[in-house]
């Protein structure tokens, strides 16, 4: 086999690969391997490498089609709940760590670059660079999962779980993210809470919340800046769970259901991607890929870009709610 390898394949610096040599090489490989006119990586039912490659490419695109529709169910659920209960999403987004989300976005984008680069390396038979790019892709994917792990751990710790397990340890107005954005509203919510807890003056609180009611007691009518963020987040007002004191919106847990479902499913895809890249990295290290046979790298890169694509939408939808 090794005799048949044509050294002319490897592109020298600043020198384009001569195409005829590629074909010549295929002929050699074919005769050695099978005596069938096929190359070592050409399956028996394909006539040419081009046919095999195109078939695989069409196959992976169809697979991506199914992936897009697979995720669409979750996007549909997201849109329906966000449209009907915007306060839940406003409430919940204060609990998410935008910095971590942004880091993860960048990490995935870089891994997308290295995946695309790996395809190029495979096409040009640059074995070491190919292995390097695959390694970086895997490293980025692992970084993504580690960041995700810390995010999840934090959520679990804070009781931000889907369904009946949802028991947030902190109220939304106690969060730094909320305080930083709406200091007056946070202060006002605190005030209302104290009023409700210590004085038991429920009517005063209810009056303060309902702007149409006359203000009773010493309590002052709140300003727009104090009230609006709380109303929008469902802390007070008609969407709130508890109408007598600042609380959280009804069914706030649904956001975290969707959050965990979407990011979890995406995470599973990342894990699957890591598995695929490790396998391809091993094969690349053995030098199995070259101009005639780089399909697996190309297809996996396409899959990887789709995983990136899903995250490109998840990031603003989950982390960047205004």
């Amino acid at each position: 086999m090794s005799e048949s390898i044509s050294p002319a394949i490897e592109p020298k610096p600043g020198h384009r690969v001569p195409a005829p040599a590629v074909h010549e090489d295929a002929d050699h490989g074919g005769h050695d391997e099978h005596g069938h006119g096929a190359g070592p990586h050409l399956a028996h039912h394909f006539d040419t490498y081009q046919q095999q490659f195109d078939a695989g490419k069409l196959g992976i695109w169809l697979f991506l089609l199914t992936e897009v529709l697979f995720f669409s169910g979750l996007f549909c659920a997201y849109t329906v709940y966000r449209g009907m209960h915007p306060e839940v999403f406003v409430y919940a987004h204060y609990f998410l760590n935008t910095t971590m989300g942004a880091i993860n976005t960048c990490v995935l984008l870089v891994s997308s670059l290295t995946a695309a680069w790996a395809v190029r390396n495979a096409q040009l038979a640059q074995r070491k660079l190919l292995v390097l790019n695959i390694a970086i892709t895997i490293a980025c994917a692992c970084t993504f999962m580690v960041v995700k792990f810390f995010e999840y751990q934090h959520k679990f710790h804070d009781g931000l779980l889907p369904g009946p397990a949802f028991h947030p340890t902190e109220q939304v107005w106690e969060l730094d993210a909320f305080k930083k954005k709406h200091p007056e509203a946070a202060e006002y919510a605190e005030k209302l809470t104290q009023l409700a807890e210590h004085k038991g003056d429920v009517s005063a609180v209810a009056g303060a919340i309902d702007l149409t009611r006359p203000v009773t007691g010493k309590f002052e009518r709140p300003t727009e800046a104090q009230l609006e963020p709380l109303l929008k987040a469902g802390v007070i007002g008609p969407a709130a769970e508890d109408t007598t004191r600042p609380s959280k919106p009804r069914n706030a847990h649904v956001f975290f259901s969707i959050y965990f479902f979407m990011t979890g499913l995406h995470g599973i895809h990342v894990l699957a991607g890591i598995g695929v890249w490790v396998w391809l990295g091993i094969r690349a290290n053995k030098g199995q890929f070259g101009p005639k046979y780089f399909g697996p790298i190309d297809y996996s890169a396409l899959y990887w870009h789709l995983v990136d694509l899903v995250w490109i939408y998840l990031f603003p939808l989950l982390y960047l709610i205004h």
Binding site: G73, L74, A77, Y81, H85, P162, G163, P164, A165, R250, N251, H253, V254, S257, I258, F260, F261
Partner: peptide, 18 residues
């Protein structure tokens, strides 16, 4: 989603949970 709804009660399809 239905399986997860059934096991974890995530409240996407169950009207009792929103």
């Amino acid at each position: 989603m239905m399986i997860v709804e059934r096991t974890l009660h995530i409240g996407i399809f169950d009207p009792m949970l929103g």
